[in-house]
Structure formats: C-alpha cells, structure tokens
C-alpha cells in the first residue's frame, strides 16, 4: 500500500520538480522591468533595500510597501506569491511577539514589531520586483561593470548552463540508490523511518555526485583555458566589448524619474501626516 507521504515524495523528487525549477530559472518573461538597464536596477534596488531600515515613519513605510507591491505585480510576480510573502514575513515574528508577551507581560512588542515587518516587506518586494524578471546573464554583466571579478559572472552563466545536467544526474543517482535499496517496512510515527531513509539517500548520493562533478569540472576548466577565459581575465578587451551592450536609454530615465517622484511624494505625505 502506498501512502500519502510516498506519493508526495515521488511527486517531489522527479520530473515535476525539475520542470518547476527549470521554469523558474529559464522562464524569464519580458516584463516592464526586465527591459531596463540592469546596473540601474541593481543600484535602484540597493537603495530600496537599505533605506527603509532608517525610516521610522509609518506613513512612509506603508506608502513604500504599496509602491513595491505594485512594482512587483508589474514585474509579473504572481499575486499569490506576494500574499505568501506577506504571510511569511508576519509569521516570522509571531514567536517573537509571543515570547516577548510572556517575558515582558505587555503587548507593546506587538506594536513595536509592526514597522519592522513592513520594512522587511518593502525590502523583499523590491528585490522580488527587480530580480525575478532579470535575466541572470544581464545581472552578471552588470556586476562585471561594477568591477566584480569575471569568476563570479562566469559562475552565473555556468550555473545557468549546468543546472539541468546536475539536477538530472543527481536524480539518476538517487534513483540508483532506490533501485537497489529497500524502503523501511514500517513507516514509523510521522513517517520518520521514511524520512530518515530518504534523507540518508539524499546525503549519500553526494559521494558519487562529488566525484562525477570533479571529472566534469576538469574538462570544463581545461576548455575554458583553450577558449581564452583566463586570457580575458587578464586583459580588459573582452570586458569592454561585453559591456558595450549595456546602455541607459529613455525607459531607464523614465523609470528612475517616475519612481523618484512617487517616492518623494510618499515621503512628503508621510512628513505631514505621520501615523
């Protein structure tokens, strides 16, 4: 007899997950934000991920949160994900409130945590808006232009390329364990025996995985050598060629202008009508 857990796990472990992962990784669609200059977007998001920490005005915080929510929605982050995120952020602090209530005896902690929750929400939403739709290649180009070494941007595209291969290989190895292994006869309380069985496999599978990947890596690094990767790291020619494609255009300026104006409005309103 097959039980719910196993069904769940088999659903989790095979094709479905792989496809979902691939979809998230490769399914970047054209959105309002994805057309913009990645360098500008990174700086923009850095601004909105640092600044909220230093704002203690509730009106401004709520205003910014709404703005970020709208932008995330425009970046085609599904509304469900946004809601889940909000719930997640709130639940993060429930224990804190609960324990503080127990130790301090008042509800002030609850009130104190609300602005913090909103801050984290602003930060998460702004990163979500910017990075879910950003092509990883564009991101790595932007980092390259900020002076982050080529190794990192290589890592991005290598990860982008190897991800499906690695997932498939890991899946085959797991299946190899299962094809020769034996599931525990009893499931145990809360399926703990099954959980232990699967966790053990998922750890042990890294033994073959490590050796196989090491073999792979050797060819890759050798090929990088003959294809001039280390040469490009030593001189700037390649970098200059690559970054030529990055340009700020009309849309970028419009985006900056519009979001700045809205932000300034929010701050002004907040100053006059602080909550």
């Amino acid at each position: 007899m097959l039980n719910v857990f196993q069904k769940l796990f088999s659903k989790l472990s095979v094709e479905n997950i792989k496809i979902e992962l691939m979809r998230t990784a490769y399914g970047t669609e054209e959105t309002v934000l994805s057309r913009l200059d990645p360098r500008m977007l990174i700086v923009w998001s850095l601004f909105f991920t640092t600044v909220p920490w230093f704002i203690h005005n509730m009106t401004i915080l709520i205003g910014l949160a709404v703005l970020m929510g709208v932008l995330a929605y425009m970046a085609r982050v599904s509304p469900l994900l946004i809601v889940l995120l909000i719930i997640g952020v709130i639940s993060q602090f429930t224990y804190l409130i609960f324990v503080a209530l127990f130790l301090g005896g008042t509800f002030t902690a609850l009130l104190a945590v609300i602005p913090l929750t909103i801050k984290i929400m602003i930060i998460s939403l702004s990163s979500m808006a910017v990075f879910t739709s950003m092509d990883p290649e564009k991101f790595s180009d932007a980092l390259l232009s900020f002076g982050v070494p080529g190794k990192f941007s290589f890592g991005v595209s290598y990860g982008y390329r190897m991800l499906p291969i690695l997932i498939e290989e890991y899946q085959s190895i797991i299946q190899s364990f299962r094809l020769r292994g034996k599931m525990p006869a009893k499931k145990g309380i809360l399926y703990w025996r099954y959980i232990v069985y699967f966790l053990k496999i998922s750890v042990l599978a890294f033994y073959p995985m490590m050796l196989n990947t090491a073999k792979r890596t050797r060819t890759t690094v050798e090929a990088l050598e003959i294809r001039g990767f280390s040469y490009s790291e030593e001189n700037d020619l390649a970098k200059k060629l690559k970054l030529k494609a990055l340009k700020m255009n009309k849309y970028d300026y419009q985006f900056v202008a519009i979001t700045s104006v809205i932000t300034i409005c929010i701050i002004n309103i907040g100053m006059f009508y602080p909550l």
């Binding site: 998230t24 990163s127 990075f131 879910t132 990883p136 991005v156 990860g159």
Partner: peptide
C-alpha cells in the same frame, strides 16, 4: 547563483 539568483529568490 543556484539557490537565489536562478530560483528567483535573490534578495539583493
């Protein structure tokens, strides 16, 4: 790269 950037979970 793998867990955050490619999975759309990059937190700046």
């Amino acid at each position: 790269i793998f867990a955050d950037l490619l999975m759309g979970d990059f937190s700046g």
